[in-house]
Design a protein around this nucleic acid. Sequence first.
DNA 1: CTGAAAGCGCTTACAG
DNA 2: CTGAAAGCGCTTACAG
Lengths: 343, 343
Amino acid sequence: MTKVAGKATLAMVAELAGVSSPTVSKVLNGRDDVAESTRTRVQEALATIGYESPVQRRVRAAGPPLVDFVCEGLSSAYAVEVLRGVVEHAADENIEIVLSQVSPELLRETDHEDWANRLVETGRKGLILVTSEMSEAQLLSFQRRNIPVVVIDPKSPLKDGVVSVGATNWAGGKAATDHLLGLGHSKIAYIGGPESAECHVARLHGYMAALRSNGIEIRPEYITGGGFKSDYGVTGLASFAALDDPPTAIFASSDSIAVGVIEEARRRGISIPGDLSLVGFDGTYLSRQTMPKLTTVAQPLGDMGRAALRSVLRLMAGDTLESHHVELATKLIVRDSTTAPRA
Amino acid sequence: MTKVAGKATLAMVAELAGVSSPTVSKVLNGRDDVAESTRTRVQEALATIGYESPVQRRVRAAGPPLVDFVCEGLSSAYAVEVLRGVVEHAADENIEIVLSQVSPELLRETDHEDWANRLVETGRKGLILVTSEMSEAQLLSFQRRNIPVVVIDPKSPLKDGVVSVGATNWAGGKAATDHLLGLGHSKIAYIGGPESAECHVARLHGYMAALRSNGIEIRPEYITGGGFKSDYGVTGLASFAALDDPPTAIFASSDSIAVGVIEEARRRGISIPGDLSLVGFDGTYLSRQTMPKLTTVAQPLGDMGRAALRSVLRLMAGDTLESHHVELATKLIVRDSTTAPRA
DNA sequence: CTGAAAGCGCTTACAG
DNA sequence: CTGAAAGCGCTTACAG
């Protein structure tokens, strides 16, 4: 593996492969008038020498490598805080980040091969995804072209070989519930995200594990949800309030949901934490700005972004990662929205 | 204007400009051994013919144009909201945004010519700056290479020919102060940003204009500041509280400053708006999340981002802009932090 | 299917 | 400061 970067010419590759320059040129340009065996030999020579076309060389010499950050937009504090981590690490590592906003629909319509080709031709060296769904075919297109992809908090489990970074959702859900149990609550409800989201499922199971290991029965009427927006907090609290035996505490699986609970509680004259204790999840700025300040399970979003970029860089360098999925620790932050239940 | 894209060669440009190919090559590569008049002639020929280097051609064929967004980081809500506008407009226009985080120091150290060359060679088509200082030499380097630059809310006035987008800071400062006057306040203080910031100066003058046209004397002890962070709100309120005749209202020239005022007021048992009315500036999420909710002068940050990108695209297309500076309207948003003074 | 030869577009080194 | 000449690296057209 003798890579003399910035020096390899097409003629050198030709010599190593034992063919002429025109033949190498044909292989590079994907012409089909080349014998398959010759093509293979040339491709090996290209890899051995580490050949780069003038365009690639220029782009590389001209500036830092480009890594794409693909998200559904910057309206969620979640995406912004992950991006901040990515951008800070990028500045340290002399990498530049290309920001693409992609709707899930667009993602499904886009031709995989086209997208992957474009990435290669524009010199992108890797991809960080903060967006829901990505088809297997799409991920394969990237892999075939040796473009490293790292997914942040994937909604559903990924095939082996696709790298992802997440947070310890189960442990976070358990920590939130344990905190409420520790304060003396036993009637603890849960408002969750969409069924399809792995992270919601993990948080819910953490919640249930905490209850069970304290010998507390799980009451289906205490579990509701459907999404991470604040609406679910409003409707969730409404449904709990209608019960004969309403909960004395709620674990909301996002800070947005918790904000909805706070709004609805205010409308109903329910005092937080006096009448109802509340724990959120995410730890974005939302949780710092509510009244009362929200006890929440913080995800290390910036660190997740940093870790994702670090993995992309290691994959770019040809490293093999120890694990295709990493979970960073969540952390319970106790503020003013939780207290012991009324006697 | 005969643009035969994908056909123009350097030799054609040379013929049109009446020079040799090597000379055109020098201009393209930003060499300095070219007479200024020759350079101009060649640049006109380049523009007329619509010349693209092989690299640019390849990059363009491969994907959407790249525009750089340069900021000091994503920790300010200000930068994030501008960026959101840019990214949304970029998605509509099929443009991709490269996010660069640059410290002012780094900016000063970086070699202008290197940076500009890198932009051309990596196919960047324009630049949006949300960062304080940019030397005249730097801006010249961009102009020499026909890279459109748009500055968001420049700290100091720019040379003619450099395009910028801002908000009506003077009018906003006046509107904030008029609102307080309208409620019956006459002892109105101001906490401002750094002396060097144009936008602070404009807001301060708007404040003073409102007072003067109501026949109210300007009291130097009612004017303080030094930066836009919340610390200045804390120290500002402290200094006003120490006065024999403290103000009954404060106009803070950023939401962050206002947050500092709220914190310090809480510590001192000063009720807002009961004892003290407060107006902020910016209208970022901060102003929505405070307790009480903040009356503030909103800047149309997303629209400013969109306008900046639109200007870059027009300049890329060779349009001449009507004006090298545009100010978008600010808007007073009345919430819960202002009321009539105690009798 | 392959490669010697010609060609293309740009850059470099240097004489004036 | 400019450009004729040489050169570089790749591609194309075509003979075998």
